[in-house]
Design a protein around this nucleic acid. Structure first.
Length: 433
RNA sequence: GUGGAUGUAGCUUAGUUGGUUAAAGCGCCGGUUUGUGGCACCGGAGACCGUGGGUUCAAGUCCCAUCUUCCACCCCA
């Protein structure tokens, strides 16, 4: 296959046979966000590169090796967003949202871009739903954001997923913790793997989630962040847990979850699924009290999360979750000749204006082929349109499920067909009861 | 970026120790006396065998490279 027939590595098409699932999922996300008071914000797909260097952090892998960065024709360094928080915060500062009535609660859905080696649940273009709650330092905000994520997952139909939370403290208490960690791991220096030796200098907290059995064995005995939190951070974390309990949200504290973006402080959390392989984090987020100030705004505490929609889809698929079926046409009109096709177009227009999903022949096919087609697209009813029907202004509507035939008046097709549809609905309700 | 697997019609696959026009099922299109689908039967379209080199009289089958997808690592949603 040549390049013009092939999608770029790590990108995916969402086909018509699947897009209604995406529409359902995204619809639910926006709906529940709204329920919690988070309204949608839309920001550009690309930003000045500096936006991500400042926020995500220039020592992170995301910035160092995964960004799609290029110079535009005006000589600006531009980067396709690797995540959405940075752009949203930039916009909040630029548009004065941080000076509005706080907290400002926003949500978003959009594509993100990271140059990584693709595998299941990890694409170069992927989609995230997320929220940001700007302007509250209170534990109640942490709990509300976590609750929102949990409800989205549950309402979409995820059956099994676990919430893990942790606190990584403020910059002050992290200093003490880093020192303790370095001391601990330095005494086991000879046993650590190569990458962990490197981490020991740059970011010792990352050793905690190394998958190598040797390192994780050593990490099991390492000092725990929670023991090094300052009084304020400790109280904050305790309070978050109290709120979660009050809201009936179950969680486990996992002192080993460490988020890879530099801006996180205090609460961090993940929703993890055991059903989709190694890329198991479906949703990740936390508090970032220093980020807005760091990006040139006022000192305003905030938090949020990002949810990977592709990963969520994988979870739903592997759990055989029941998603709503695609909408089928109400009526297929099968014209027999040229003039009937013209009449069919007229009838379609009338019915569609009334909101009935109506289709007709666009391929000039014979009757039999049209009936097959009507069956394949799942039309609920069909109508054959020939000379007789047009001159008599009467036609037969056939129920494609049971073959039942009802005669209607073509001049008032909207009314007559509406009646048939209503009867059908009553019949369905009666069956359910 | 590292390591391992994969690649034949839209989909799922067959293709024997390299040998004449690369098979099948599903799907798609059409037909079975010309105005009614789902079943059955018949027919048709559709594949430069991922791509590029090489070995050979001869390669889908062997060798090399490259790309894609998948799995694990790194990292993250």
């Amino acid at each position: 296959m040549s390049e013009i027939n092939r999608a770029v590595k790590g990108t995916n098409d969402i086909l018509p046979s699947d897009s209604h699932n995406w529409q359902f999922v995204e619809g639910k996300m926006l709906e529940i966000a709204k329920l919690y008071g988070f309204n949608e914000i839309r920001v550009p797909v690309f930003e000045h590169t500096e936006v991500f260097l400042r926020s995500v952090g220039d020592t992170t892998d995301v910035v160092q090796k995964e960004m799609y960065t290029f110079d535009d024709k005006g000589g600006r360094s531009i980067t396709l967003r690797p995540e959405l928080t940075a752009g949203v915060i930039r916009s909040a500062i630029e548009n004065g949202l941080v000076n509005a009535a706080l907290p400002v609660k926003v949500c978003y859905i959009g594509g993100c871009y990271r140059y990584e080696k693709p595998q299941a649940g990890r694409l170069r273009e992927f989609h995230q739903f997320g929220v940001e709650c700007i302007g509250s330092a209170e534990p109640s905000a942490d709990a509300e954001v976590i609750a929102l994520a949990g409800q989205v997952l549950a309402d979409i139909g995820v059956k099994k997923i676990s919430l893990e939370i942790n606190s990584i403290g403020c910059p002050e208490c992290r200093k003490a913790y880093h020192a303790a960690l370095k001391e601990y791991f330095a005494s086991n220096k000879d046993k650590l793997c190569g990458t962990c030796l490197d981490r020991l200098e740059r970011n010792p907290m990352r050793i905690l989630d190394c998958k190598s059995p040797v390192c994780s064995g050593i990490a099991a005995g390492a000092p725990v962040v929670l023991d090094y939190l300052c009084d304020d951070c400790k109280a904050h974390f305790e309070s978050v847990k109290e709120y979660l309990k009050a809201m009936g949200i179950s969680y486990t504290v996992n002192p080993h979850i460490v988020r890879g973006l530099d801006y996180y402080t205090r609460t961090v959390f993940e929703f993890v699924s055991g059903d989709i392989g190694a890329q198991s984090t479906v949703c990740g987020g936390g508090r970032y009290d220093g980020l807005i100030a760091q990006m040139g705004g006022p000192q305003v505490p905030s938090l949020g999360f990002g949810m990977g929609i592709e990963r969520l889809m994988l979870v739903l698929k592997s759990q055989n979750a029941e998603l709503p079926k695609a909408q089928k046409p109400d009526l297929y009109i099968a014209p027999l000749d040229r003039s009937a096709r013209l009449k069919a177009a007229e009838l379609c227009a009338k019915l569609r204006a009334e909101g009935y999903k109506t289709e007709t022949d666009l391929c000039a096919r014979g009757l039999k082929a049209q009936m097959k087609f009507a069956d394949k697209i799942g039309a609920k009813f069909s109508l054959v349109l020939g000379e007789d029907e047009i001159t008599l202004k009467k036609a037969k509507i056939k129920n494609m499920l049971d073959g039942e035939i009802t005669e209607i008046n073509l001049d008032k097709i909207e009314e007559d067909f509406g009646e048939i549809i209503r009867e059908q609905i009553f019949k369905n309700i009666a069956e359910v009861i």
